[in-house]
Design a protein around this nucleic acid. Structure first.
Lengths: 197, 197
DNA sequence: AAACAAAACTAACAGGTGTTAGTACAATTA
DNA sequence: TAATTGTACTAACACCTGTTAGTTTTGTTT
C-alpha cells in the first residue's frame, strides 16, 4: 500500500495538516488534542505518528507555509517596476484579503496560534513578521517621498492595514450579506483610497 | 483579617482577575493553569478557590465586563443628539483605540479567548457582539442617508473598523516609535477621515 | 505465493489538569 | 477572652495530555 492512496486524496500527511489547521483555528492549538485530530482523520491517535513527528511540527509547518506565501508575494510586488507605490499597496492588501477569504484556517492559525511555536521557531517567526512590516513601511515611505501618498505615519498605517483584514473572520460566518468580491472592493476603498494624495 | 487588606491593594479577587487577564492574554486561556495563576498571585492553587468559583468564572467576568463597557459607551454616543453620524463614528473609534491602549489584557482576552466561554455564556456573548455590530451599521446607514458619509458597505466598514484597532497589540511591543496620541490621530485619519462625504 | 513496506492497531508511560475536602492559622468582632 | 471569619495550607481525586514501543493488518511488488 502506498502510492495509489497518496494520489487519490493527497498524501495522508496533507490530510492531517489540513484537519489540524481547522481544529487549531476552531479550538485553539492548546485545546486541540491529538485524539481530537485523530478522530477527525478517522484513525487512532498513535497512528498519526507514522506521518508526523509531533503536534508542534504541525503548527510549525502551517505558520511558515503561510508566512512564506506572504513574503513571496511581497517580493513579487517589490520587483514590479510598473506599479506606483499606491498600486503596490493596493496589490498587497488585495492579496491579504484573498488569503483571508480562501485560506482562513491556515491564516488564522498563523495569526493567533503562532505564540505556541517552540523556540527557536517562535523567535524566527516574530523576526520575519517584523521584517515584513518594515518592508511595507518602506513602500509607504517611498510613496510619500514621490508624492503619491498623503503624509501619514507609515507604522500606524501598516498596523491598521494588516489588522483590518482580520475582520474577514466574521464575514465567513455570514457570507450571505455580501460577496467576497464586494467585500474586497469595499475594503480597498476604505483602506487604500483614502491614502492617495 | 479582612477589610484592611481589602482596602490596601484592592480585593484579593480583583488581584486574581487582573493576573488572570494578563496570563490569559500571554499564554491563552487553555494554556494557563491554575497553578500558574496561583504562582503569580503568590499562593497555592487550591487557595484561589476561596475567592473564585472556577477558572471559567474568571473568563466570564473579564469578557462581560469589557463587553458591557463597550456597550455602555455606544449607548452614550447614540443618545448624544449634538453629534453628526461621522462624529459618532469617530468617537466610537477613539474609544476603541483608548481601550486597546489602556486595557490591552482584558480587551485581548475578550477578543481572542471568548470562544472558551461555556454555554450559555458563549452564545450570549456572540449575540451581544452581533447586536453591537448591527448598531454600528445603523449609525453608518443613517450617515449615508443624511449625506454625511460616502456610499459604502456598512457591514464591511464596521468589520474593518473593529478589526483595525487590533493592530495596537503590536504597537504595545514597540511604543518608542510613536506615542499613543499620535497613534490615535493617525488611525482616525486613516479609518474615519476617508468616509466623509 | 512470498516478501516487503506503509500504516493501522493496542497498551502503556509519566506528567499535568481543574477542583474538592479537610484542616490550620491569623486577625477582627462580640 | 471567646467566637467568628477570611484565607492560607496539604493531600488527593479522576481525568486528560503528547508520545513511545511493539505488534498486526493491509495492499503492492517481485
Amino acid at each position: 500500500m502506498a502510492k495509489l492512496t497518496n494520489r487519490k486524496n493527497g498524501s495522508r500527511k496533507e490530510m492531517i495538516s489540513l484537519a489540524a489547521a481547522r481544529l487549531f483555528r476552531e479550538k485553539g492549538f492548546a485545546s486541540t488534542g491529538m485524539r481530537d485530530l485523530a478522530g477527525d482523520v478517522g484513525v487512532e491517535a498513535a497512528s498519526l505518528y507514522n506521518h508526523i513527528r509531533s503536534k508542534s511540527e504541525l503548527l510549525q509547518e502551517i505558520c511558515f507555509r503561510v508566512a512564506n506565501d506572504f513574503t513571496a508575494q511581497l517580493q513579487e510586488v517589490e520587483n514590479d517596476n510598473t506599479m506606483s507605490s499606491i498600486e503596490k499597496l493596493e496589490a498587497i492588501v488585495r492579496f491579504h484579503v484573498t488569503m483571508w477569504v480562501n485560506r482562513l484556517d491556515e491564516v488564522m492559525v498563523t495569526n493567533n496560534e503562532s505564540k505556541y511555536l517552540e523556540e527557536p521557531y517562535n523567535a524566527t517567526f516574530l523576526n520575519e513578521r517584523r521584517i515584513y512590516v518594515r518592508r511595507l513601511e518602506q513602500i509607504i515611505e517611498e510613496g510619500i517621498t514621490k508624492g503619491q501618498i498623503r503624509k501619514v505615519q507609515p507604522y500606524s498605517v501598516v498596523l491598521t492595514l494588516l489588522s483590518a483584514v482580520r475582520g474577514i473572520e466574521f464575514w465567513h460566518r455570514t457570507k450571505k450579506n455580501i460577496s467576497a468580491a464586494e467585500l474586497e472592493e469595499s475594503m480597498i476603498i476604505h483602506l487604500v483610497e483614502g491614502l492617495k494624495k
